[in-house]
């Protein structure tokens, strides 16, 4: 099956074009996915920071009711899976899921290990290290980010609600966002790229097959028919209608047949003559 002219021309071209396009598409997709994930993390950290800043005044005044309302309102948004604020020991003070309030977070969980994997916990983390991927309460993939609530001069000097000056981190805000919209965009991108690669394969196959049929296979078939007619029947002076190199091959064959024909006729005349002489 792979030994005919068509296969010999189509297989390497189709494999090359489709394979290379596929490699580029996959790498492009991986790059776009990494960029989109980085953007989502940056966006989530900005939102987490916004929540921290909007609760600052309530924290300074130790207004637990206002803080609880803010956490409830933000946590009720469709894209937000969870929102919790816990102190340095891991005791959850506020959570969008009321059941969690008053419990301790698991310090061995992925989000805590970023800072707590060394004997002395780290106070700062890089942007991507603040993010983690978890399975949410509703079963979907969740992008969770942790934003530390740092001690500020206004916190350590406040008259109502004092934290010691040496304490760097007062607490952590942990917020999780549903990754479904991002995953839907990536799935649509995947489909578009798959369709593009498939179309490229079909177009390459059809294009090469059409050109090959027009320029090579049909002229060769005509050459086979022409030479076959000349061998089986007699000399064909009607012409072959072939051009290019294949036309030259047909002309050469025709000339060769004419010479052979003439030589055979000459031989026939000679043998006839020798027969007459013998008689």
């Amino acid at each position: 099956m792979l030994n005919n002219l068509g296969a010999k021309a189509i297989v390497p071209v189709a494999v090359t074009v489709t394979g290379f396009a596929l490699v580029c598409c996959i790498l492009l997709y991986a790059g776009i996915k990494a960029d989109m994930t980085r953007d989502a993390v940056a966006h989530s950290l900005t939102l987490a920071d916004t929540v921290v800043k909007s609760t600052r005044f309530a924290m300074l005044r130790a207004d637990r009711e206002t803080l609880g309302n803010i956490v409830d309102s933000v946590g009720r948004q469709q894209e937000v899976d969870h929102l919790r604020i816990f102190d340095k020991k891991g005791l959850i003070s506020f959570s969008s899921n009321r059941v969690e309030t008053g419990r301790f977070v698991d310090k061995d969980a992925g989000g805590c290990l970023g800072c707590h994997n060394t004997p002395t916990p780290r106070a700062t983390l890089e942007q991507m290290q603040q993010a983690r991927r978890i399975v949410g309460t509703r079963g979907g993939d969740i992008l969770a980010v942790t934003a530390p609530i740092y001690n500020e001069p206004s916190c350590s000097n406040a008259s109502c609600h004092v934290h010691p000056e040496g304490q760097k981190i007062l607490g952590i805000l942990d917020i999780g966002f549903d990754l479904a919209p991002l995953q839907a965009s990536l799935a649509s991108l995947r489909w578009r790229m798959a369709i593009f690669t498939l179309m490229l394969l079909i177009l390459t196959g059809i294009g090469v097959a059409a050109l090959l049929r027009r320029s090579v296979i049909t002229p060769i078939q005509r050459l086979i028919d022409f030479t076959g007619r000349e061998i089986n029947d007699s000399l064909n002076d009607e012409g072959h209608g072939l051009h290019d190199e294949i036309g030259t091959v047909a002309d050469n064959h025709h000339r060769l047949r004419r010479r052979l024909h003439a030589a055979l006729a000459e031989l026939a005349v000679l043998s006839a003559k020798s027969g007459v002489i013998k008689d």
Binding site: T16, G19, L22, V23, I26, A30
Partner: peptide, 17 residues
């Protein structure tokens, strides 16, 4: 994992050829 798929696709193309 997408990057690994890219290596697989590149390998399949080169080795098939």
């Amino acid at each position: 994992v997408e990057n690994l798929w890219a290596v697989l696709a590149a390998g399949a193309t080169i080795l098939v050829l």
